[in-house]
Design a protein around this nucleic acid. Structure first.
Lengths: 383, 383
DNA sequence: ATACCTATCGAAAACGTTTCCGAAAACGCT
DNA sequence: AGCGTTTTCGGAAACGTTTTCGATAGGTAT
């Protein structure tokens, strides 16, 4: 009935169960188990990218020779190389970066985690990152945390799974635990924080002049005659929120103004929160005569609402904000801001990281501070 | 002097040149060439991510068993699996996606090529893409062409080298040849065009209501009493520019207005070009009483400049634009626009692509058109 | 010729997975 | 016991590179 694969006899072959749907046999003389193969489904060739092996076969040389030709090794005859390069070009050969990376143990890719790609600030940072990364031969993989801690952790894990050579991260506003960062740091992954940094982990960092900018804005309000300055602060758990609030307090202290807790309102970077803040402030026995919004979006929102309520800006209430976009200049009255340079921040962070990747051993976790710029516009010019 | 590696005799060994810096020998009896090995530099263990092999060794099982445990195969004892999962978790195992992808022949990554990540429209599209991609278990790799054709070609090649499973692309304004796309399409790579599409290649496409939107905007201007409507058109080589211009012309024709070539001005999406256009129009014997800006940025620029010159909007000149952002609503007068939905466009394009990837065989190159919305604001309300 | 040397190539291992195939042990039934 | 069956595991190949090592053919000096 059935031939043994070894001795080709049929007499000593017995059935021996099923294996993955196929009848299994046992030859008693050979003591050999075997199954009969299914009629092979035809190979179903789908179009592939051409490989080094394809080139090697088509020229009758070894794959190693092709590799040498493509990588500019000297261990190869120049005629052979020419021929190989010609064929490679002809077949539109593109090296498989997966195989290269797997072999080399490095991907030449950096991972970026940001809260939201749609915020112009982060889009600007991304552009800066891409700029220096591309220049240095690195690719960029971007993830959004959507301001969620768990998503941020998943993002980091996904980037680790892709074996990025380094990580650039700006934390979500929810993030108060940094174990996911510390874990990778311990494994030796180069990490650079930017903008929304933390003090709990020893990484290189790129920050804004959060303290100085807030101080300058509030100082400016005071110099314009404001005496009761409210602050629309950010999420209290974010370090940059805290630092900016510190700048606010320091300016008040420096100019001998009292600190009034009823003038401090914390938001979560959400829509229409600032309106609640405004209602609160206007209901006070002594309403503010100046508002400092830690987040640019809140400043615009407040400005629009003040206009809507026919409150004179800056005569009755002056307003200033942190961060800048085209709209701040075009809205009426135009908004006084502490201008940031997101593109440059991205560039700085990326070059720090790439430095960190290349000089893995001799690297110290420095902190760089980006320069900002006080841009005085109509919303605060009372004099 | 030197022992032969095989016969261990020294008498018949002679020098035989140098090989990569090392002295080479030849044993005449054995007919064997060999070199003496250098004192091996110590292994320099740098921290690595844990692999399946690490887990296998620490438990004394085969790598294949670990793989089965991690992938939920039934071919494994549940106690073994538990133990393996425990150790994997303990060692913070993350599968190496490079190795997985190399083996599977697919990366679960889609490549995106856009002109510029800082343009809010594209940032919105990206967010939409990321949204459905993440949902479907795909990663996203983003490249910017910076409006350059050669960079765009390099971008595509880089993504191909990374072996993305599919490609989403919105062309640079320079791109008039599509060989780089056709080449990959011929290799069987799923490709979806969005926004700045082309008609030269047979791919699935997602487009805006370029014709309908332009028609609606111009129709609206006409209904508001405008009779000489200028158009600030885009780069003439872009298909969407052409389509929008067609919409403009069609509306004029439909309402019996003459087409005047002096009222058509082509820009390249650059700063202050629109001012040149404005100067040109205002110097005409019969200046326009309405302006349609194909690109949103130009509309804002023109609006600001008109205000600056104390020209009444919309009384003297009404103005409308294509595309929308927060600023259009907040600027004074607020700008009438044909509102687009970039996020939804990104979602649509991504799900089309992923469909294309999964059902590679049964896929037809359909074109989807995103709905837009005419939003009438002050800049055009003359009645 | 002989001794030594260089230039150029191929074979094979390695990177970390998955999967195919089969072996061995355990199990269930007469 | 004896036979057929199932469960569970290990070995090895494969994905596409790069790199190490060594072999060979053909030099160039003596």
């Amino acid at each position: 009935m059935v031939e043994c694969k070894q001795c080709l006899s049929t007499s000593e072959v017995v059935k021996a169960g099923f294996l993955r749907g196929r009848q299994r046999f046992y030859c008693k003389t050979c003591q050999l188990h075997f199954t009969v193969e299914l009629p092979a489904a035809l190979p179903q060739k789908t179009a592939r990218q051409t490989t080094i092996i394809d080139i090697a076969k088509s020229l009758g040389v070894a794959p190693s020779t092709v590799s040498r030709a493509l990588n500019g090794s000297t261990d190869i005859n120049s005629l052979t190389r020419q021929e190989i390069l010609r064929v490679a070009n002809e077949m539109d050969y593109r090296p498989n970066l997966l195989a290269q990376s797997l072999h080399r143990g490095e991907t030449h890719t950096i991972g970026v985690v940001i809260p939201n790609i749609e915020r112009p600030f982060f889009a600007g940072v991304l552009a800066g990152i891409q700029n220096v990364a591309t220049e240095a031969g690195y690719r960029v993989m971007i993830c959004q945390s959507n301001e969620s801690h768990s998503t941020e952790t998943l993002n980091v894990q996904a980037l680790i799974a892709s074996r990025v050579d380094g990580l650039l991260i700006s934390h979500s506003k929810e993030t108060t635990s940094f174990e996911h960062i510390r874990l990778q740091l311990k494994k030796g992954l180069p990490i650079v924080h930017f903008d929304r940094v933390c003090s709990e982990v020893e990484t290189a960092k790129v920050v804004q002049e959060d303290f100085e900018g807030s101080f300058a804005l509030v100082e400016h309000l005071i110099q314009q005659g404001c005496r009761r300055i409210a602050v629309c602060a950010g999420p209290p758990q974010l370090l940059i929120s805290q630092t900016r609030l510190e700048g606010y307090k320091a300016a008040l202290r420096h100019y001998g103004l009292a600190l009034d807790d009823t003038l401090i309102y914390h938001t979560e970077f959400k829509q229409s929160e600032s309106l609640t803040a405004l209602n609160h402030w206007l209901s006070l026995p002594e309403p503010p005569d100046g508002i400092f919004a830690v987040h640019y979006g809140n400043a615009i929102e407040l400005l629009v609402e003040l206009k809507h309520r026919k409150i004179q800006i800056p005569a009755e209430i002056a307003i200033v904000g942190f961060g800048d976009e085209l709209i701040a200049e075009l809205i009426e009255p135009s908004l006084t801001v502490f201008h940031l340079f997101p593109f440059e921040m991205g560039e700085t962070a990326a070059s720090l990281l790439i430095d960190n990747i290349i000089h893995r051993h001799t690297f110290s976790p420095i902190t760089k501070k980006m320069r900002g710029e006080l841009r005085i516009r109509q919303s605060s010019m009372r004099l």
